[in-house]
């Protein structure tokens, strides 16, 4: 693979995982948020990634196969809003129930580990690409 293409794909992967981690952080930070600009409690957000073709000049066979990743959209999950009984809460309804965000802290933590491991994998791929290039330059010694 072309060096710059490889680095570009690594970069897109890192950016995607960073975005994913940002969304997870936002979900975790807003785990008790009951007020949002759209109204109602905060809703769990999920990120959708899309593959994108990149122009690779190195090999015509892998030209079509090589894909970088792009952040496609962020979706809100509107299902599973929890109704918690807490009459003292300022946002409690007439029956004393408060609509709480539909965030499961365990699944967020698991997603966070996945994202950070994927990020590390991208960094490793980057290092490996760099090592290969350095080895290639050693041919000239």
């Amino acid at each position: 693979m072309d060096l710059t293409t490889s680095l570009k794909i690594c970069g897109s992967g890192l950016a995607a995982q960073r975005a994913k981690l940002d969304i997870i952080t936002s979900n975790l930070a807003n785990i008790n948020t009951t007020r949002t600009p759209e109204g109602g409690p905060y809703r769990k957000k999920t990120i959708a990634l899309a593959a994108e073709t990149v122009a690779d000049n190195f090999d015509s066979t892998i030209k079509e196969a090589v894909r970088s990743v792009r952040i496609d959209e962020v979706k809100e999950d509107t299902n599973g809003i929890k109704m918690v009984y807490d009459p003292s809460h300022p946002d409690a309804d007439a029956k004393g129930y408060v609509a709480m965000p539909n965030i499961n802290i365990m699944s967020e933590m698991a997603d966070m580990i996945t994202a950070s491991r994927a990020y590390e994998a991208c960094v490793t791929a980057f290092e490996s690409t760099k090592n290969m290039t350095m080895k290639t330059l050693e041919m000239g010694r």
Binding site: L7, L14, M134
Partner: peptide, 17 residues
């Protein structure tokens, strides 16, 4: 992001070498 800067740095390093 920081990663973009690092990638640019590495690119510069490799091209210099």
């Amino acid at each position: 992001g920081l990663h973009e800067a690092m990638i640019a740095l590495e690119k510069a390093d490799i091209s210099f070498r």
